[in-house]
Design a protein around this nucleic acid. Structure first.
Lengths: 245, 245
DNA sequence: ACTATCAAAATAATCGATTATCCGTCAAGG
DNA sequence: CCTTGACGGATAATCGATTATTTTGATAGT
């Protein structure tokens, strides 16, 4: 049996997303582990966008057999990070200005909608999760000199945004938002090694979170939309500058 | 066939979805064919919602080996029609009132948004595609006595809704809408053997399409939203009546 | 030179068998 | 009795080898 401790509190609300990575891991299936490793490799930019994934090389690189490799790649297709074509194999999804703009637009639409629903439906457990995620995020420093802090920050940042909308009671919507965050994070990881100086991102997050738990619908939604929009603009500039498009 | 659309990009104009039967088919990979067969089996209700998928039995039923079977199932996971858990195998996604209501809500949000964008951005080619899809759909009769007409109608209906929003220039959004349509169609296929008598669905489609090509944004969006909403209400009633929830 | 054609190499897809994991059952101990 | 843990059948995951497809590169014909 899997002791899924839905424990004590949080009747309606779901368990706060895994705080410190995964603990019970290590006995997952090879395919699952591969999916994680590949996902990180793609989002971090280690595997270049648009590049072909040679099964034989990948098999040797990761020291696994074909079955779990395909299994792992199949999951990344669901994530939109890998594309596939019959008899032609796999390829890391391309990045482009249009793609980034679509992601930003959809995040504005969907995440804001999900936030509104969360404020409408979320219980006190949700509020607590939001404040905790905010606190954790704001207490974590990004030091461009130490890559592990960047990874950690990305993880907490992702978690904050997901927690914010986790009260909406719409699993499919949450899934879509999660995918969009994944796609968006790849752009940030590739193009931003540090937070742009002209923004106080921590404060933006705080304003959103406080508006959310105060159920100030219009304010919180507006702040979130602006936050996403600014991030998009910021990334677009970097993409235009550094990118080879 | 199901247009699997995450492709690279579909700038503004799109090739009209497969009109003259299937030419390039017949030499796909076994995994692909399986994915299609399984998708149809699930959407049509042949494979009961929530039921476990035994790999050995499936292997014998379809007379294939494990590799392509897993390959096919992996794609249905992307479609949200199959769920998977490590070491526990595959299972047809469950249906529920909550799930149906979420699908309906999200369709209202996403499809309407996509339609608005299509009207804003779509070119004359898109308009033509919409009118053609409408014509094809309205010229096709649903005869409850002949299942093949139901399948045909479902295909054209799906195509109409996708064509309607195909001008939005947002591949990811189209992908999401396509998934939602898939999920929604399963409910209709399972619970409706005939169009409910109190609605003139053909006329609803015509109003939406005409409003769309006339670029009457508010009117068309409103019609589409009501259309989706009515379908949702309709399905919910059938689900409550016939379903064993 | 240019294109078309075919053979060989590279790559992807599939298979059958093996290994690992889960799940129900039953016996021993508390 | 109830709990606990070990056995065994059922099921899933993985592997190594085989088959099918695509791509490459060389050759011949126009």
């Amino acid at each position: 049996m899997v002791p899924h401790d839905d424990g004590a509190f949080a009747p309606t609300t779901e368990d706060a997303p895994s705080s410190s990575g995964f603990l019970d891991d290590g006995k997952n299936t090879i395919g699952s582990q591969l999916a994680s490793r590949l996902r990180e490799a793609i989002i971090s930019g280690e595997l270049q966008a648009g590049s072909k994934i040679n099964l034989d090389k990948a098999r040797k690189t990761f020291n696994v057999s074909l079955s779990p490799l395909r299994e792992g790649l199949a999951r990344l297709i669901s994530d939109g990070l890998v594309e596939f074509e019959d008899n032609r194999g796999y390829r890391v999804s391309s990045i482009s200005l249009a793609n980034l703009e679509e992601i930003t637009t959809l995040r504005e639409e969907f995440e804001v909608f999900a936030l509104r629903e969360s404020m409408r439906l979320g219980d006190v457990g949700w509020e607590g999760n939001v404040m905790r995620a905010l606190h954790r995020l704001n207490r974590t420093e990004r030091d461009a000199a130490r890559p592990e802090t960047l990874e950690r920050w990305e993880e907490l940042h992702r978690e904050f945004h997901l927690t914010l909308i986790s009260g909406c009671g719409k699993p499919i919507l949450l899934h879509f938002c999660s995918l969009l965050l994944n796609l968006n994070d790849r752009y940030r990881r590739v193009f931003l090694t540090r937070t742009s100086g002209d923004r106080n991102v921590s404060q933006e997050h705080s304003e959103i979170a406080q508006g959310a738990v105060a159920r100030d619908l219009d304010y919180a939604c507006d702040m979130l939309r602006q936050h996403i929009h600014r991030t998009g603009t910021n990334l677009r500039n970097h993409l235009a500058t550094k990118g080879t498009l």
